[in-house]
Amino acid sequence: MVATIDLNQMTPGFSDPVFNSQETFRAILGAMAHPGRIVTAGSALDSPHPLNRASAAVCLTLLDFETPLWTDLDSDHMAIGWLRFHCGCPVVQNPSEATFAMITNNDAMPSLNKFKTGNDECPESSTTLIIQTSGLSSMDGKRLSGPGIETFSTLKMEGLTERFWQDRQIQFTMFPLGVDILFTCENTLAALPRTVKVEG
């Protein structure tokens, strides 16, 4: 049985669903095409705790009834009700069934191989991870190279564990299989597609 959504605590989503989601889609597209580039999204959004504005905007833009979501939040959490109300997405218990995954607590994050990595025929049928970080900056940090980056770019994501980067390194060798990742912080986001090599 699916839990009912408590509308009494509900807050609005995009003020203009059509234009705001187009704007966010464009931002995600830009971030994905230029890994490491930090773009803004959801600046005017009133997102439910603990989702930051960029994560909430990504969900409102990309999620619908055909995209199962896995999150590390409790199933009766207000933010899940908010996502189900505005996106209409099913919430699944198993990361390997999810098209999108929302990670709010990086320390307790499942290993990357727990998510869908696609198969050789359809590598795109994988999970896209939305990982909330406590800070995003392009001043220093990891060195990224690959498609969409002329020489190299740098990106620093605060609060990720060493285990995560080891997982990412292993997954990089599985290309074209793997997960694509969006890192978010407040109203900014940056992408780490599976094509990108991470060093440092």
Partner: peptide, 8 residues
């Protein structure tokens, strides 16, 4: 009043 979900 305010809209939680605008007419769609």
């Amino acid at each position: 009043y305010r809209h939680l979900r605008k007419p769609e």
